[in-house]
Every structure is written in C-alpha cells, then in structure tokens.
Design a protein around this nucleic acid. Structure first.
Length: 473
DNA sequence: TTTTGAGTTGTTCGA
DNA sequence: GTCGAACAACTCAAA
C-alpha cells in the first residue's frame, strides 16, 4: 500500500521557522520534504556559480535541521513530481511562491496538472511583505515610483503577515526510491574559488538569525548615514539569507516593530521595501532582466570591449575604489551597496559597456544574486529603469572614495599593494608625484595598473552619448 | 482632463 | 573652503 503524504517543495524558503507552506503541510499529516534542482526551465537564469555554492551549503544545513529527511532530485520538476506520485499516495503538494517569471510559468503548469489529477496544490507567500499584485494605485495601475509605492501603496495597505513560530514536532518521510544525494546535484564550483568565500558566511537558518541579531546590535544605530561607508559595520548583509529564505522579511519586520521607531529603523524598513519594489517591477515587466524599461535606451551607443570588461571583472581597472569593490565581490561573494553603485556607474557610464554585462557578472558571482534586485538595480544605475537615476548622475570613483572611505580602510583591505600610499593619493594614484609612489613602493603599470580610462574625458563622452540619444528621437 | 509638485544614493563650476 | 546653480527635461501620482 502506498503511503499517504503531503509534499513540501523547498525553493527559496530554506527554513523551518515562519514557513507557511511547510506549517500547513505538517498540520495535514506526514510530510515529504523535497528539493529539486530544475535543469529544464531556467534558460539564461539558471543559478550562477556563487548562488549554487550558497545553495549547496544551505541545503546541507536544512537537511540537518530535518534530521536527514530531505529528498533531493535533479531534472524537470513536473516529471519528478509525477514520479514521486507513482511511489506515494500524494494527498497534496505545498510550496511557497517564487516570483521569477520562468518559475511562475512552470509552477502554474504544475498546479494545473495536479489539480486536474485530483491532487490538492497549495501555494503560500513566504518571502514578500506585500505580493506584487496587491500594491496598486487608486486607479488600479501599478506604481512606477518608489516613494509613493512604499509610503502609500505598502504602508497604506494591510500590515504584513506576522511571522509563524518555529515548528517543533512533525512527521517527515524520505523518498528512498527516486531521490539522489546533495552531492549529485553538483552545485559546487569546479575551481576552488569557493574556499575564499567560506570564512565569510554561516549558511544556515541559525546563521541568518545570528546575522540579524548582530546587525540589530552593532549596525542599526547610525544605520542611515553609516550604511554608506563600506568600512563601517552598519549594513545588515542579510541579502543572501533573504534571497534563499533562511530568514523571512516578516521575521525582520516583526522584530523591528518591537523596537522604538527611529530614522534608522525607518530607513532599514525602506530598504526592505526596495526589495519589494524590485519584485513588483519584475512581476509587471517579466523581461526586466534583458530589456530596457525606457525604450529610448535601445538606441544608446554602448561600446563593445571584452578586454575592458575583463579588467572590470578582475578588479584591475587602475581605479582603486572600483577595483576594491570588484575584488571584494570575487573574494567574498558580496559587495557593499555603496560600492555596487560606484562600480556599476563606472561600467555603464565611464566604460560605456552595456549594463547587461554587469548584470551577468553579478548574477554569476554574488551570493545574493536575485533576479528582481539585480535587474532592477542595473537598470537603475544605467538610467533606463523605473524611477532611475538621471543620466547626468555619474559617480566619480575618486570623490566617492574620499567621501565614503575617507581613511582608505576599505581600499587598503582589498588593494594591499597600495596600502603604503598616503590617503591623499590612495584614490587617484596616477596623480601622485613620483617620489610619493616610490616611497610607497608603487609602480604604476607594474605593481598596480594605470587607469584604463580617463575619468574626466569618459564622463564628458557619456554625457554626449546621452545627448545623441535625445537627438536621435 | 488638467494641473501641480515631486522624484534614493551626484558632480562640477563659478562666485 | 563653502554654497547654489546647472545639468534636462520628463514622467508620475494625486488632487
């Protein structure tokens, strides 16, 4: 006789606390918790290397939390679920909703199929405070500007669902017939680049909680201003945990609600809301990852240079602030938000390479690579997105460094070959007199590169490129 | 339908 | 060194 079970399909909800779909499944009976590596539906948006590395460890710790009761599969989810139904009597399938366009399409098909075949399919919201279709203007249209989206749209509608307490008792079952092992999913990279990432992260539900508590402890006070300084510990670094669902935004929102409201708690909430805004943009514009939201940018005169792109990726542009950011990314799988804007602006405006090159690189190397956030943010910095930066806003990586890393701690951490330069020339070594360079044992062009582009000239060129755009209309 | 005020994150120049 | 204006209009949200 086949065992009567409820499937809980883990996706971006790798946690046991505040997991609505899992909770509801457990309330119904014996649960088969599964993870499927989808090799059939993702196209260009299959996970990048850093994401896969993170996922591997996230699944490992989830498996431990479930005392080994997590069944792994690789392939086409539809076929795999059908196969499971051959061995078990599946009473229901549960999952928490995902919002990447290809996943919505896939999940809709699966839901339809199993409903037709008498299986109850239930989906839940576990990763957004407000799902995209619930936030609308009075006339029913979606918002295109952040401030009204958040202030009126989000804060003016229903308060977010309170987080659900952690599950303690549950009946789990494992599929020993058609499942594979975590190792079979082959999520770890071929080169041992991931060894560098490891010391920076505790990839687990507990790790997420600890990260959040540390932030409340050390980062929240002074957050509003401090979040701009890459050497300070004011940012939460919760993004990868939020992406994979080791922690939910609801858990964060609830906790903030117990604190006295300050400009810092308010600002941190608004940063969470930016995530919601990105999801809303992606939901409304499924081709956000590829297509300029502002059509006039389709005629923008991008340059094409794999050589320049490679130097940007490797952090050898000769612009210290940019190189520090790109090296932080490569070494830790993360980059401070302020620096993301600086390297983004540099790629798109100074090098004038298409924002999609940046989007692709970040997708592959960020542990928090998130389709909605990544696409919306690249469009924002390029100036072609919703509520985007005006085109004349071109970051100067020298000025930005002097302003937000005044003591040069961040640059020295990631560019040790410049550590003996005085602050006056740390952000712009090409302007340093020879004797200063010599004293700091810096040889431009050999120990550290000359700038691959002239900041002043490329700024002027970018502005005129935008001019041509306007003239071409 | 029309009007009005406002819009995450910057830089440069000249007084 | 500091400050305001210019950069470029344009679209959006809401009255």
């Amino acid at each position: 006789m086949k065992k009567n079970i409820i499937i809980h399909w883990f996706r971006y909800d790798l946690r046991l606390s505040d997991n609505p779909a899992l909770k509801a499944a457990i309330d119904k009976g014996t649960v088969l918790p599964i993870y499927i590596k989808d090799t059939h539906n993702a196209d260009d948006y299959a996970m990048g290397s850093a994401s896969k590395w993170w996922l591997h460890h996230g699944l490992k710790s989830l498996e431990q939390s479930l005392e080994g009761n997590l069944s792994f599969y690789s392939g086409d989810p539809m076929a795999i679920l059908k196969k499971i139904a051959e061995h078990f009597s599946v009473q229901a399938i549960h999952w928490n909703r995902c919002y990447e366009p290809w996943m919505i399409k896939r999940d809709t098909k699966i839901k339809e199929y199993f409903k037709e075949h008498g299986v109850d399919v239930n989906s839940y919201n576990a990763s957004l405070l407000w799902e995209p279709w619930t936030i609308k203007k009075d006339n029913g249209e979606p918002y295109k500007v952040f401030t009204p989206f958040y202030k009126k749209g989000c804060l003016g509608s229903a308060t977010p669902r309170p987080a659900i307490q952690k599950i303690h008792t549950a009946a789990y079952v494992k599929d020993n017939v058609s499942s594979c092992t975590l190792e079979n999913l082959q999520l770890l990279p071929g080169i041992d680049w991931d060894k560098m990432l490891e010391p920076h992260w505790d990839i687990s539900e507990q790790g997420a909680q600890k990260c959040f508590i540390d932030f409340l402890d050390k980062g929240l006070e002074g957050y509003k201003e401090g979040r701009n300084f890459p050497a300070k510990e004011n940012v939460s670094r919760l993004s990868p945990y939020l992406h994979f669902g080791h922690i939910s935004p609801n858990q964060i929102w609830d906790e903030l609600s117990t604190l006295e409201s300050t400009i810092h708690t308010d600002h941190f909430r608004s940063e969470l809301a930016w995530r919601e805004f990105s999801y809303s943009q992606l939901y409304i514009n499924p081709d956000l990852p590829k297509v300029n939201l502002q059509k006039k940018f389709d005629n923008f005169p991008w340059r094409d240079s794999s050589e320049l792109l490679k130097k940007w990726q490797q952090g050898i542009t000769g612009i210290p602030m940019v190189d520090a950011g790109m090296r932080e990314l490569w070494q830790t799988g993360y980059m401070h938000n302020r620096v993301r804007m600086i390297v983004g602006s540099f790629l798109v405006k100074n090098l004038r390479l298409h924002w999609r090159h940046g989007e692709r690189w970040f997708w592959d190397t960020l542990v928090d690579a998130d389709l909605a956030n990544n696409s919306a943010s690249w469009q924002w910095i390029a100036g072609c997105g919703a509520d985007a930066a005006p085109y004349f806003r071109i970051f100067n990586p020298v000025t930005q460094g002097q302003k937000f890393d005044p003591e040069g701690e961040y640059i020295r951490k990631y560019i040790p070959e410049l550590c003996d330069l005085p602050n006056k020339y740390l952000f712009n070594p090409w302007e340093a007199p020879d004797n200063i360079l010599k004293l700091a044992r810096v040889q431009l062009g050999s120990t550290y590169p000359n700038p691959i582009v002239d900041l002043k000239q490329s700024r002027v060129d970018a502005l005129s490129a935008f001019q041509s755009l306007k003239a071409g209309l």
